[in-house]
């Protein structure tokens, strides 16, 4: 996979993406307050791979997903989908591309219309994107239901008649209905119980293989990320701190934040547990992020340099980039 990737063209190329939210001012003279939810991130997504974005709440991982699709208009940077700029597209062109890039959200129930049967929902999705003429949709719907492991008679039911796991399957079926190339999974399995989560994860993996899908998988759960990803990108306060192949990232994390994050995960096998690094304090507010390296307030190794100068994301090993001034020293 990794060797193949190099000579493949990226399907999605994100450059210097920024998403700043300006808070409403109480009074005219108040200083402008800007939340830098995503602050200049660049990465590529290659066909057929699963790239995960991990991080804690407020790191900007979900905002990144939304900005790519312009669900929130990005305030800077560019997103290329097959060499076409999504940020410069008209609304009409964007609607067409949204058929190629689908999203699955955490709460499938909130994103399903309670008054529509599954059949109506799938039919509508196909009609909007004009993927199939009406007479061929029936067969396609049955095929979709089979893909996601739901019985064909469920087509006539309403969302409230399903359990959480089944609803997520419906969400997946609807995303697949328009033959997308990329699926953005935004915390898609986070609300599910472990046994159901395993079913959905297996399903996603199988679908990726069968349908040659590309996943951008957004999650806070590192063990899930490890299971599903080819490459992993770690975010902290709107910045990418590390991006690498899965095995490289999990076996040899370079950024002190990634190390702390990995060591903080409770594991069932206590013999495999590494020494825990407990970070001090809370994640600072993205409203006034720390100057220099954004992690410097919690980093056990921070120096004056870290408090002054923002480290750039640089490739330290092949397919393994990190944004830390002292990555070399810390890894040896």
């Amino acid at each position: 996979m990794n060797s193949l990737m190099i000579d493949k063209k990226p399907l999605l190329k994100v450059t210097e993406l920024k998403q700043h939210f300006t808070l409403k001012r109480e009074v005219v003279f108040q200083a402008k307050q800007v939340v830098k939810a995503v602050d200049g991130i660049s990465f590529e997504l290659f066909p057929g791979e699963t790239l995960s974005i991990v991080g804690e709440s407020g790191c900007g991982k979900s905002t990144t997903g939304r900005s790519i699709l312009r669900l929130d208009e990005p305030t800077g940077g560019d997103v290329l989908f097959k060499d076409e700029s999504l940020t410069k597209m008209s609304k009409k062109e964007l609607r067409r591309v949204r058929g190629d890039i689908q999203v699955i959200f955490q709460d499938p129930y909130a994103s399903l219309n309670p008054r529509r049967t599954i059949r109506q929902m799938l039919d509508e999705a196909m009609a909007i994107q004009k993927v199939l003429p009406p007479n061929e949709r029936e067969a396609r719907m049955l095929e979709l239901m089979k893909h996601v492991g739901l019985r064909p008679e469920y087509l006539e039911r309403y969302p409230h008649e399903f359990s959480g796991g089944q609803r997520q399957r419906i969400g997946i079926a609807r995303a697949l209905a328009v033959n997308p190339e990329i699926i953005i999974c935004d915390e898609a399995v986070s609300a599910l119980d472990v046994s159901i989560r395993a079913q959905i994860l297996n399903l996603l993996k199988k679908l990726q293989k069968d349908l040659n899908l590309t996943f951008l998988f957004i999650s806070h759960d590192l063990s899930v990320v490890r299971h599903i990803s080819d490459r992993v990108m770690v975010m902290y306060l709107g910045k990418i701190v590390e991006i690498a192949d899965k095995s490289s990232l999990f076996n040899n994390p370079l950024h002190p934040y990634t190390k702390a994050l990995l060591s903080a995960i409770p594991v069932t096998d206590q013999t495999k547990r590494e020494d825990r690094i407990i970070l001090k304090g809370d994640v600072p507010s993205p409203l006034n992020p720390p100057v220099g390296c954004r992690f410097n307030t919690r980093c056990p190794f921070a120096t004056d340099l870290c408090r002054k100068e923002e480290p750039k994301l640089r490739e330290l090993e092949s397919n393994h980039s990190v944004a830390c001034h002292y990555a070399e020293e810390l890894s040896s």
Partner: peptide, 23 residues
């Protein structure tokens, strides 16, 4: 057994997770 099996492992690669059928 099913519950433990359905957890993704942090220190090893698996192709497929063990699942508990049904609800």
């Amino acid at each position: 057994q099913g519950l433990i099996g359905s957890l993704p492992k942090l220190y090893e690669d698996q192709d497929e997770l063990q699942i508990i059928e049904g609800t």
